[in-house]
Amino acid sequence: MASVGIEWINNFPAPCTQNTLSYCDDTSVGFLNGMVSRGHTTAFNWGNQNAFETDFRESSLGGDDGHWVDAVDFAHFSAHGGTNSSNIFQGYLGSHNASCTWRSDQARYGNNFNLEYLIIDACNSLELTRDIIAVWHNTFQVLHMIFAFTDLVSDSWWTGGRCYNNGRRAGNNEKLTDAWLDEAYSFWCDDNPVTMAAGRSQADAINRRDNERLNSGFGDIPHNEIAYYAWKWRS
């Protein structure tokens, strides 16, 4: 049984002003509903102004991830996002609780806590024109996989069901990579999902990326034993 936490932001009032999004609640809550429909449990559901930057930031760096994102098995974030030329991903928030963005260089998941799988339903979140290992390596403490997008991803009613399908399949113990790539890909909108997995070797990373399921029994890899990453995408 996996515990699931979601954070989603549609509204970005000052001082965190950004264009309004419309369906981040549908993608995050859809994922949660898909998982819960297969027997998994809800840990938290923070939306709009209730999604805090500190929920994502490492506790030893002044954050509170040990009570939130890093305290669940599966976390889902849906909002604006972007990876800059310094290889830092920023997830945008709708309230200034410490900061209007959470950053990949301040995220450490799985260290002393729990998070195994992170979905980032946001633009440029596993951006293949950047160095994705530089962006995310420090985040993989005991974290197993990240599911995200290269390039921009659509915010629309017509594609808003993607994460329900993903949650339903992931929760049903299907291969996590297939569940993400199949459901989040849209040739119509040119939405290109990516999966990234850590491994002790190249073969291990590929095996985990292609075969890991919620109940497949792949063990944790301490950060200092990660030697390879494998990723997969459709375009």
Binding site: L128, D131, I133, H137, L181, F187, Q202, A205, I206, I226, A227, Y228, Y229, A230, W231, K232, W233, R234, S235
Partner: peptide, 24 residues
Amino acid sequence: LHKITYLRSGSSDLEGKEKTEKLI
């Protein structure tokens, strides 16, 4: 026919010295 897409695989060691990409 609209388009042909490809499922793509990438892997790399931490330093990027042994980087691979292939079509699946």
